[in-house]
């Protein structure tokens, strides 16, 4: 799946599951942890979503901000894993 489509789907998931304030919008480069959008269990739910929707597997040592802390980083990570 191309990166554009991945980031759209991830953005949709995050918007629908974690952003309850309708005024708020998350841009693709916003830090999810710093903005308080996702907490540590939320990250796990996100990983569960990624594994289901993009048929991939995430290791414990990949659960780092570099891979998961913004929509863009997530999309890059998924695209990288899918290509591997």
């Amino acid at each position: 799946m191309e990166k554009q489509k991945i980031s759209e789907k991830v953005a949709q998931f995050i918007a629908e599951q974690f952003v309850f304030d309708e005024e708020l919008s998350i841009s693709n480069d916003d830090s999810l942890l710093e903005s308080g959008t996702i907490d540590s269990t939320g990250i796990l739910e996100l990983v569960l979503f990624l594994e289901e929707n993009f048929s991939m597997s995430v290791e414990d040592d990949e659960l780092v901000p570099d891979n998961l802390d913004s929509i863009n980083k997530i999309a890059d990570f998924v695209a990288r894993k899918n290509a591997a």
Partner: peptide, 15 residues
């Protein structure tokens, strides 16, 4: 179960 030794995965139960 995908990674049974994971320290982190069972934390999802809290959710």
């Amino acid at each position: 179960a995908k990674n049974p030794d994971s320290e982190i995965r069972p934390k999802l139960l809290k959710k």
